[in-house]
Design a protein around this nucleic acid. Structure first.
Lengths: 342, 342
DNA sequence: TTGAAAGCGCTAACAG
DNA sequence: CTGTTAGCGCTTTCAA
């Protein structure tokens, strides 16, 4: 570095006191007199002092930093959560180190290692589509680092989880559709090894069963959480000449894939086939027709995750893992609002 | 911390060598023999050693970390850029510290301070709508921290800038529309104090003038970059009974606002009024009608910003500020594809 | 109310 | 090829 940074010692030298005094004064420690504190702060500002977090954290063994691992960022659900997490952190004086696994388990693993190396105070994670080995999470916990699993969680015990009521949300949507008059309902499902895929599927089945409607396995299309998956599933049913009256998709991108496929083959939504999805995004109201959905309250998801995290950090010893479930609601727009089959 | 972390000394003790040897071995330093290195790495892995970045960075005065400040994250343009930045960083072994200013200049300032305190190796920033005082950027540079202004840049000299060819992109769009037959073209402009607002407006005017079309100030509606702005501007013209044939919006959200307003008052797009916007997003193809736009290549923006950043970091002394301009292209979908006024 | 001493975990420079 | 010495900039005892 050509330009050396100002340190405590520089200020100390200038004021003819010790660095300790400066350190304390700057942190508002009660040891130091009001006057001294004031003076120190003034000089520090003049000199453009910028505390060195590395040194501070190294010495205090606390970083006031929370690591976050998410699978994707250019996706409304996650970017919205992230935005709320950042806001929460800002208000509570925490820093966020965000990492993005790109749905890649190997990369997820590396990011976790990095966060540990950075000595973050805790980690909030939403796992990838392909994460299957939960041992890495055990490792994190064994290091004494608080962990919160958010939304996409593995099958681990004894860890904080903050999830959406996926099953309940799915039931809500399907029950509503049934009440409307729908009976032939397909589900474009996600990856069953991930909780959200499994639970939404279960909710779908539950609702059908409860209403005495037979579950048709041909109308449960396994895929992933992306556009292509929706496109392919639709095309499969279309080619089999086996389209249902309504499609319930596991995510909003999957629904986009359906829109695209339907337009391509000239099937009209909602006249020829209707649709509702899990997951909200502000652009849904601009689609044609505006897409109805199960809304997930990303703000609450984020806030609760942070809340649990901070509690756990500040109360490490006698902390019992929390399991929070966030409620959902239906947002009705231009699809799935009436049953008008011929 | 209840569970102490493994340190170099722990490994050193176990192997009866010095900590320095371990340190070097772990970093693959040529000083150490292959065998020793191998052994050390093995033991380190067994012990679950995780290098302490704080200590490492403090001692080496290098963090391999790049700070990023953006105004918003739940917005396709930025989340897309961020995603590319993360990927680039991952491939080049840099860490990213992302901060979000929420379009708030005060918060931006704080984030900058934090990043300096974290001793990041450099900072990439896209400024807020309200940032007016560039002195903070001078301060960053005076600290010897490389700075890259990306997309939304202040009026500073002598700093790296990586921007989109906003003026050129606007000209491209308007010229194309004029060739189609459009003459009555309005511009829903952004904030003029920010380069992208100014340049897109200038491009709009340039193109009109070049084609001998008079610039009508009533058709230049000043606003910001969000949905509401588009909504309000549209309503204003609608109420004045002064709608043009085509609207060119400064961003994609502004166009969404127009969609919403138009639907509300029963004006059809593109039959009654046509539209094209600056800025791409994958959901545009799912809008009705699919929205045409000037595409900005967020991947190149991100990659170039990172490239310049890393060059500047690794070559601090004799580095000349770079000014990169990224080209645009038109993506034509369901709007602004033909002139069919009656 | 202030400060001296010690150390956080690591690396750079040099010596052997 | 390996180790010794000396910090990086800060905070935490503990003594004055």
């Amino acid at each position: 570095m050509p330009t050396r940074q100002i340190t405590l010692n520089d200020i100390a030298a200038k004021l003819n006191v010790s660095a300790v005094t400066i350190s304390k004064a700057l942190r508002g420690h009660p040891d130091i007199s009001k006057e001294t504190t004031k003076l120190v702060k003034k000089v520090a500002a003049e000199l453009g002092y910028s505390p060195n977090f590395m040194a501070r954290n190294l010495s205090s063994r606390k970083s006031n930093t929370i690591g976050v691992v998410i699978p994707k960022i250019a996706h409304h659900f996650f970017s919205s959560i992230i935005e709320h997490i950042y806001n929460y952190a800002f208000e509570h004086n925490y820093e966020i180190i965000l990492t993005v696994s790109q749905e890649n388990a190997e990369r997820e693993r590396k990011h976790l290692q990095t966060l540990l190396s950075m000595r973050v105070d805790g980690i909030i994670i939403s796992i990838t589509q392909e994460t299957s080995d939960p041992s890495i999470f055990e490792m994190v916990k064994s290091r004494g680092v608080p962990l919160v699993h958010m939304d996409r969680i593995p099958i681990t015990e004894n860890t904080n989880t903050v999830i959406v009521d996926d099953r309940g949300g799915a039931i809500k949507a399907i029950q509503y559709a049934i009440d409307l008059g729908y009976r032939k309902i397909a589900h474009f499902a996600g990856i069953p090894s991930i909780n959200i895929g499994m639970e939404r599927l279960n909710g779908y089945k539950d609702a059908l069963v409860k209403n005495g409607i037979e579950v048709n396995e041909n109308w449960i299309l396994q895929g992933d959480f992306g556009e292509n998956s929706g496109y392919n599933s639709f095309m499969k049913l279309y080619n089999e000449n086996n389209l249902p009256e309504l499609i319930f998709t596991v995510t909003y991108p999957v629904a986009l894939g359906v829109y695209m496929a339907a337009r391509e083959v000239g099937i009209r939504i909602p006249q020829d086939i209707d649709i509702i999805c899990f997951g909200n995004s502000e652009v849904q109201q601009f689609l044609f027709p505006p897409l109805s959905c199960v809304n997930q309250h990303t703000d609450k998801l984020a806030a609760k995750s942070m809340e649990v995290m901070i509690e756990n950090i500040e109360n490490k010893d006698e902390f019992e893992p929390k399991h929070i479930v966030i409620d959902t609601d239906l947002i009705l727009r231009g699809t799935c609002i009436s049953y008008n089959r011929s």
